[in-house]
């Protein structure tokens, strides 16, 4: 199809996949959902190219795709495992190099993970996160504050430091 979509796709894929992975807590599922989101974008191309915040749009489609499947029961068990901070491991996907941080992120409540992903990976401002998720800016701020404390303690621990990304 369109060359401009191919460029758009390859440029946005890594960041969208990371956002969805952190939000979902399951890299296997995140990859499927991210691919679905890009396919839906292509099905609407070139209108999708005009979206103001493509990362926010794509991650929303991907997360909704996950929820749709979760709702239908297929992935309920895996979703529950994610809630417990036991992310599934995709045998062929690269592992995060800072496992302590990954585990800490995976153990966060689902909405907190989603907010963390949008703030730190998608680089969305708090106001835009609030609009994207349909919550107040105050909730975004307080949730980020709690997450910052939890994840910050992991980053400052000696174990995490020793696994620092080289």
């Amino acid at each position: 199809m369109q060359d401009d979509f191919a460029d758009w796709y390859s440029a946005l894929w890594p960041r969208v996949l990371r956002v969805v992975t952190v939000a979902v807590g399951d890299r296997d599922l995140a990859e499927e959902a991210t691919a679905e989101a890009f396919a839906r974008a292509l099905a609407r191309w070139p209108a999708t190219a005009e979206v103001t915040s493509p990362i926010a749009w794509l991650q929303t489609v991907a997360i909704n795709h996950v929820r749709s499947r979760w709702r239908r029961g297929r992935l309920e068990r895996r979703a529950l495992e994610r809630m417990a901070g036991q992310p599934q491991r995709h045998p062929d996907a690269p592992e995060p190099r800072n496992d302590a941080l990954w585990d800490a992120v995976a153990a966060l409540p689902s909405r907190t993970r989603h907010i963390v992903a949008l703030r730190y990976i998608a680089d969305l401002p708090e106001a835009e996160i609030a609009v994207t998720l349909g919550i107040t800016r105050g909730t975004v701020a307080s949730t980020l504050s709690r997450a910052r404390q939890q994840l910050g303690s992991v980053l400052s621990s000696p174990t995490a430091t020793s696994e620092e990304i080289s």
Partner: peptide, 22 residues
């Protein structure tokens, strides 16, 4: 935090052909 989270390895994009078919 942003630096660490953005450095989580991401699988390479699915082949574009798969996306096009879908």
């Amino acid at each position: 935090l942003a630096r660490h989270l953005r450095s989580f390895p991401a699988a390479p994009p699915r082949p574009l052909g798969e996306i096009e078919v879908r």
